[in-house]
Protein backbone atom coordinates (compact mmCIF):
# COMPACT_ATOMS: atom_id res chain seq x y z
CA UNK A 1 0.00 0.00 0.00
CA UNK A 2 1.46 3.36 -0.96
CA UNK A 3 1.91 6.32 1.39
CA UNK A 4 -0.88 8.14 -0.42
CA UNK A 5 -3.30 5.39 0.46
CA UNK A 6 -2.33 5.08 4.11
CA UNK A 7 -4.20 7.13 6.69
CA UNK A 8 -1.02 8.15 8.52
CA UNK A 9 2.62 7.78 7.64
CA UNK A 10 5.01 9.10 10.30
CA UNK A 11 8.70 9.07 9.57
CA UNK A 12 11.24 9.59 12.32
CA UNK A 13 9.24 12.30 14.07
CA UNK A 14 10.63 14.02 17.15
CA UNK A 15 9.35 16.83 19.34
CA UNK A 16 10.91 18.56 22.33
CA UNK A 17 9.54 21.05 24.85
CA UNK A 18 12.56 23.00 25.99
CA UNK A 19 15.05 20.39 27.10
CA UNK A 20 12.43 17.66 27.44
CA UNK A 21 12.24 15.29 24.52
CA UNK A 22 8.57 14.32 24.38
CA UNK A 23 8.73 12.24 21.19
CA UNK A 24 11.91 10.70 19.91
CA UNK A 25 12.13 9.30 16.40
CA UNK A 26 8.79 7.56 15.97
CA UNK A 27 8.16 5.66 12.76
CA UNK A 28 4.74 4.19 12.08
CA UNK A 29 1.90 4.00 9.63
CA UNK A 30 -1.82 3.57 10.06
CA UNK A 31 -3.84 1.98 7.28
CA UNK A 32 -7.35 2.86 6.30
CA UNK A 33 -9.94 0.50 7.70
CA UNK A 34 -7.94 -0.56 10.74
CA UNK A 35 -8.05 0.17 14.44
CA UNK A 36 -4.61 1.26 15.51
CA UNK A 37 -3.86 1.40 19.24
CA UNK A 38 -1.45 3.99 20.55
CA UNK A 39 -0.27 2.78 23.91
CA UNK A 40 2.11 4.01 26.55
CA UNK A 41 2.30 5.07 30.17
CA UNK A 42 1.28 8.56 31.27
CA UNK A 43 3.70 11.17 29.96
CA UNK A 44 5.11 8.82 27.33
CA UNK A 45 4.41 11.19 24.44
CA UNK A 46 1.05 9.87 23.18
CA UNK A 47 -0.76 13.21 23.35
CA UNK A 48 2.13 15.01 21.68
CA UNK A 49 2.08 12.39 18.92
CA UNK A 50 -1.66 12.85 18.46
CA UNK A 51 -1.27 16.63 18.34
CA UNK A 52 1.38 16.27 15.66
CA UNK A 53 -0.93 14.04 13.63
CA UNK A 54 -3.61 16.70 13.99
CA UNK A 55 -1.14 19.41 12.97
CA UNK A 56 -1.80 21.27 16.22
CA UNK A 57 1.91 20.85 16.87
CA UNK A 58 4.64 20.54 14.28
CA UNK A 59 7.42 17.98 14.73
CA UNK A 60 10.91 19.38 15.24
CA UNK A 61 12.20 16.79 12.81
CA UNK A 62 10.78 14.03 10.66
CA UNK A 63 7.59 14.16 8.66
CA UNK A 64 3.97 13.13 8.91
CA UNK A 65 1.62 12.55 6.01
CA UNK A 66 -2.04 12.34 6.96
CA UNK A 67 -4.60 11.05 4.46
CA UNK A 68 -1.96 11.39 1.79
CA UNK A 69 -1.13 15.01 2.52
CA UNK A 70 1.85 16.56 4.24
CA UNK A 71 1.42 18.58 7.42
CA UNK A 72 0.11 22.06 6.85
CA UNK A 73 -2.36 21.01 4.23
CA UNK A 74 -6.00 21.54 5.06
CA UNK A 75 -7.03 18.10 6.20
CA UNK A 76 -8.58 19.02 9.54
CA UNK A 77 -12.06 18.60 8.09
CA UNK A 78 -11.34 14.97 7.22
CA UNK A 79 -10.32 14.08 10.76
CA UNK A 80 -12.43 13.49 13.86
CA UNK A 81 -10.78 13.97 17.23
CA UNK A 82 -11.96 13.03 20.69
CA UNK A 83 -9.45 14.37 23.21
CA UNK A 84 -8.86 12.74 26.57
CA UNK A 85 -9.74 15.86 28.53
CA UNK A 86 -13.23 16.53 27.35
CA UNK A 87 -15.63 19.39 27.59
CA UNK A 88 -18.19 21.36 25.64
CA UNK A 89 -19.81 24.76 26.02
CA UNK A 90 -21.71 24.06 29.20
CA UNK A 91 -24.39 26.70 28.81
CA UNK A 92 -25.21 26.06 25.17
CA UNK A 93 -27.87 23.62 23.89
CA UNK A 94 -26.53 20.23 22.76
CA UNK A 95 -27.80 20.50 19.20
CA UNK A 96 -26.41 23.99 18.76
CA UNK A 97 -22.96 22.97 19.97
CA UNK A 98 -22.96 19.93 17.69
CA UNK A 99 -24.11 21.94 14.69
CA UNK A 100 -21.45 24.60 15.36
CA UNK A 101 -18.62 22.08 15.59
CA UNK A 102 -19.98 20.27 12.53
CA UNK A 103 -20.01 23.51 10.57
CA UNK A 104 -16.44 24.23 11.64
CA UNK A 105 -15.66 20.89 10.01
CA UNK A 106 -17.14 22.13 6.76
CA UNK A 107 -20.71 20.86 6.97
CA UNK A 108 -23.51 23.16 5.92
CA UNK A 109 -25.90 24.19 8.67
CA UNK A 110 -28.78 21.96 7.61
CA UNK A 111 -26.66 18.85 7.16
CA UNK A 112 -24.93 19.46 10.48
CA UNK A 113 -28.26 19.66 12.30
CA UNK A 114 -29.89 16.66 10.61
CA UNK A 115 -26.83 14.45 11.06
CA UNK A 116 -26.55 15.63 14.70
CA UNK A 117 -30.15 14.62 15.31
CA UNK A 118 -29.60 11.24 13.67
CA UNK A 119 -26.54 10.56 15.82
CA UNK A 120 -28.30 11.70 18.98
CA UNK A 121 -31.10 9.29 18.17
CA UNK A 122 -28.60 6.47 17.59
CA UNK A 123 -27.02 7.24 20.97
CA UNK A 124 -30.40 7.46 22.66
CA UNK A 125 -29.93 11.15 23.34
CA UNK A 126 -32.52 12.61 20.98
CA UNK A 127 -34.68 13.75 23.88
CA UNK A 128 -31.79 15.92 25.05
CA UNK A 129 -31.11 17.78 21.81
CA UNK A 130 -32.46 21.02 23.25
CA UNK A 131 -30.95 20.57 26.71
CA UNK A 132 -27.98 22.56 27.82
CA UNK A 133 -24.79 20.55 27.97
CA UNK A 134 -24.43 21.10 31.71
CA UNK A 135 -27.81 19.44 32.25
CA UNK A 136 -26.53 16.11 30.91
CA UNK A 137 -24.83 13.42 32.97
CA UNK A 138 -21.10 12.87 32.49
CA UNK A 139 -21.73 9.75 30.43
CA UNK A 140 -24.24 11.55 28.24
CA UNK A 141 -21.79 14.40 27.67
CA UNK A 142 -19.20 11.87 26.66
CA UNK A 143 -21.57 10.36 24.12
CA UNK A 144 -22.30 13.83 22.74
CA UNK A 145 -18.57 14.39 22.37
CA UNK A 146 -18.21 11.13 20.55
CA UNK A 147 -21.07 12.16 18.27
CA UNK A 148 -19.28 15.47 17.58
CA UNK A 149 -16.14 13.49 16.69
CA UNK A 150 -17.85 11.42 14.01
CA UNK A 151 -20.48 13.96 12.98
CA UNK A 152 -18.79 15.03 9.74
CA UNK A 153 -18.04 11.43 8.68
CA UNK A 154 -14.28 11.73 8.87
CA UNK A 155 -11.84 9.43 7.10
CA UNK A 156 -9.57 9.29 10.15
CA UNK A 157 -10.74 9.20 13.74
CA UNK A 158 -8.45 9.77 16.68
CA UNK A 159 -9.98 8.88 20.02
CA UNK A 160 -8.20 9.29 23.33
CA UNK A 161 -9.64 7.06 26.09
CA UNK A 162 -12.99 6.81 24.30
CA UNK A 163 -14.62 4.49 26.80
CA UNK A 164 -13.55 5.95 30.11
CA UNK A 165 -16.51 6.75 32.33
CA UNK A 166 -18.99 4.82 30.19
CA UNK A 167 -21.13 1.96 31.47
CA UNK A 168 -20.91 -1.42 29.67
CA UNK A 169 -24.05 -0.76 27.62
CA UNK A 170 -22.81 2.56 26.29
CA UNK A 171 -19.32 1.16 25.81
CA UNK A 172 -20.85 -1.47 23.54
CA UNK A 173 -22.80 1.17 21.62
CA UNK A 174 -19.62 3.12 20.92
CA UNK A 175 -17.68 -0.04 20.08
CA UNK A 176 -20.33 -0.99 17.55
CA UNK A 177 -20.18 2.48 15.99
CA UNK A 178 -16.39 2.29 15.74
CA UNK A 179 -16.54 -1.20 14.20
CA UNK A 180 -19.05 0.04 11.61
CA UNK A 181 -16.76 2.89 10.69
CA UNK A 182 -13.78 0.57 10.43
CA UNK A 183 -15.84 -1.62 8.10
CA UNK A 184 -16.46 1.45 5.94
CA UNK A 185 -12.71 2.01 5.60
CA UNK A 186 -12.27 4.67 8.27
CA UNK A 187 -8.92 4.56 10.03
CA UNK A 188 -9.21 4.67 13.81
CA UNK A 189 -6.37 5.63 16.12
CA UNK A 190 -7.25 4.73 19.67
CA UNK A 191 -5.21 5.78 22.66
CA UNK A 192 -6.25 3.99 25.81
CA UNK A 193 -5.07 2.33 28.98
CA UNK A 194 -7.89 -0.21 28.83
CA UNK A 195 -5.93 -3.14 27.41
CA UNK A 196 -8.90 -5.43 27.09
CA UNK A 197 -10.41 -2.89 24.66
CA UNK A 198 -7.23 -2.96 22.62
CA UNK A 199 -7.26 -6.76 22.57
CA UNK A 200 -10.91 -6.73 21.55
CA UNK A 201 -10.73 -4.04 18.87
CA UNK A 202 -7.25 -3.15 17.71
CA UNK A 203 -5.62 -4.65 14.64
CA UNK A 204 -2.19 -3.21 15.27
CA UNK A 205 -0.51 -1.19 17.97
CA UNK A 206 2.32 1.15 18.72
CA UNK A 207 3.62 1.19 22.27
CA UNK A 208 5.81 4.09 23.27
CA UNK A 209 7.60 4.93 26.46
CA UNK A 210 9.58 8.09 27.20
CA UNK A 211 8.84 9.19 23.67
CA UNK A 212 10.49 6.18 22.07
CA UNK A 213 8.95 3.32 20.13
CA UNK A 214 8.89 0.07 22.15
CA UNK A 215 6.50 -2.19 20.29
CA UNK A 216 4.90 -1.88 16.88
CA UNK A 217 2.94 -4.32 14.81
CA UNK A 218 -0.17 -6.51 14.72
CA UNK A 219 -1.59 -7.21 18.17
CA UNK A 220 -1.58 -10.97 17.66
CA UNK A 221 2.07 -10.97 16.53
CA UNK A 222 3.14 -8.94 19.53
CA UNK A 223 1.35 -11.24 21.93
CA UNK A 224 3.03 -14.22 20.26
CA UNK A 225 6.34 -12.42 20.48
CA UNK A 226 5.90 -12.34 24.25
CA UNK A 227 4.63 -15.87 24.51
CA UNK A 228 6.58 -18.11 26.84
CA UNK A 229 7.55 -21.73 25.85
CA UNK A 230 4.38 -22.98 27.51
CA UNK A 231 0.87 -24.23 26.77
CA UNK A 232 -2.47 -23.55 28.39
CA UNK A 233 -4.62 -26.66 28.50
CA UNK A 234 -7.95 -27.75 29.93
CA UNK A 235 -9.09 -31.34 30.04
CA UNK A 236 -8.46 -34.55 31.97
CA UNK A 237 -5.39 -36.64 32.71
CA UNK A 238 -1.98 -36.42 34.29
CA UNK A 239 -0.23 -33.70 32.32
CA UNK A 240 3.08 -34.23 34.09
CA UNK A 241 3.74 -37.62 32.55
CA UNK A 242 3.57 -36.26 29.01
CA UNK A 243 6.84 -36.38 27.13
CA UNK A 244 8.33 -32.92 26.58
CA UNK A 245 6.57 -31.33 29.57
CA UNK A 246 9.06 -29.95 32.09
CA UNK A 247 6.61 -28.73 34.75
CA UNK A 248 2.88 -28.29 35.32
CA UNK A 249 1.40 -25.26 37.05
CA UNK A 250 -2.15 -24.35 37.84
CA UNK A 251 -3.64 -21.82 35.42
CA UNK A 252 -5.55 -18.67 36.28
CA UNK A 253 -8.94 -20.33 35.77
CA UNK A 254 -10.31 -23.48 37.43
CA UNK A 255 -9.35 -26.63 35.50
CA UNK A 256 -6.72 -24.78 33.54
CA UNK A 257 -3.13 -26.02 33.56
CA UNK A 258 0.02 -24.28 32.37
CA UNK A 259 2.45 -26.74 30.84
CA UNK A 260 6.09 -25.57 30.79
CA UNK A 261 7.79 -27.36 27.90
CA UNK A 262 11.27 -28.79 27.57
CA UNK A 263 13.46 -26.66 25.26
CA UNK A 264 13.52 -29.33 22.56
CA UNK A 265 9.76 -30.05 22.60
CA UNK A 266 7.08 -28.21 20.67
CA UNK A 267 3.29 -27.78 20.91
CA UNK A 268 2.93 -30.28 18.07
CA UNK A 269 4.89 -32.98 19.90
CA UNK A 270 2.90 -32.40 23.10
CA UNK A 271 -0.37 -32.62 21.17
CA UNK A 272 0.80 -35.88 19.62
CA UNK A 273 1.73 -37.20 23.07
CA UNK A 274 -1.75 -36.41 24.39
CA UNK A 275 -3.35 -38.21 21.46
CA UNK A 276 -1.03 -41.21 21.95
CA UNK A 277 -1.75 -41.44 25.70
CA UNK A 278 -5.30 -42.66 25.11
CA UNK A 279 -6.54 -41.93 28.63
CA UNK A 280 -6.31 -38.14 28.32
CA UNK A 281 -8.72 -35.70 26.74
CA UNK A 282 -8.53 -31.98 25.97
CA UNK A 283 -11.16 -29.24 25.82
CA UNK A 284 -8.69 -26.41 25.25
CA UNK A 285 -5.17 -26.31 23.90
CA UNK A 286 -3.37 -23.01 23.16
CA UNK A 287 -0.06 -21.25 23.33
CA UNK A 288 0.35 -19.43 26.63
CA UNK A 289 0.56 -15.81 25.42
CA UNK A 290 0.47 -12.99 27.95
CA UNK A 291 -2.26 -10.36 27.86
CA UNK A 292 -1.46 -6.84 26.70
CA UNK A 293 -1.60 -5.60 30.28
CA UNK A 294 1.21 -7.95 31.21
CA UNK A 295 3.19 -7.06 28.10
CA UNK A 296 2.66 -3.36 28.86
CA UNK A 297 3.99 -3.78 32.39
CA UNK A 298 6.92 -5.90 31.25
CA UNK A 299 7.90 -3.39 28.57
CA UNK A 300 7.58 -0.36 30.80
CA UNK A 301 9.21 -1.94 33.85
CA UNK A 302 11.90 -3.58 31.78
CA UNK A 303 13.42 -0.22 30.87
Amino acid sequence: MSSAEAAIVARDISKSYGRTRAVDGLDFRVERGEVFALLGPNGSGKTTTIRMILDILRPDSGSIAVLGQAAGASIARRIGYLPEERGLYRNAPVLEVMAYLGQLKGMDARAARSRSLALLERLDLDAHAGSKVRELSKGMQQKVQFAVTVLHEPELIIVDEPFSGLDPVNTQVLETLLREMRARGVAIVMSTHQMHQVEAMADRLLMISEGRQKLYGPVADIRRQFASHALLVEGGGDWSRLAGVRAVEAGDRPGEALLQLEPESSPDSVLAAIAAAGDMHIRRFELATPGLSEIFIRVVEGE
Binding site: L54, A76, E85, R86, G87, R90, L101, L104
Partner: peptide, 16 residues
Protein backbone atom coordinates in the same frame (compact mmCIF):
# COMPACT_ATOMS: atom_id res chain seq x y z
CA UNK B 1 -10.89 31.00 29.61
CA UNK B 2 -14.08 28.93 29.43
CA UNK B 3 -12.78 27.19 26.32
CA UNK B 4 -9.51 26.51 28.09
CA UNK B 5 -11.13 25.28 31.28
CA UNK B 6 -13.62 23.01 29.53
CA UNK B 7 -10.93 21.86 27.07
CA UNK B 8 -13.15 22.71 24.10
CA UNK B 9 -10.08 24.55 22.92
CA UNK B 10 -8.41 21.28 21.99
CA UNK B 11 -11.28 20.34 19.67
CA UNK B 12 -11.31 23.83 18.18
CA UNK B 13 -7.57 23.86 17.59
CA UNK B 14 -7.80 20.55 15.77
CA UNK B 15 -9.96 22.38 13.22
CA UNK B 16 -9.03 26.05 13.36
Amino acid sequence: IEEKETRVIEILLSTL
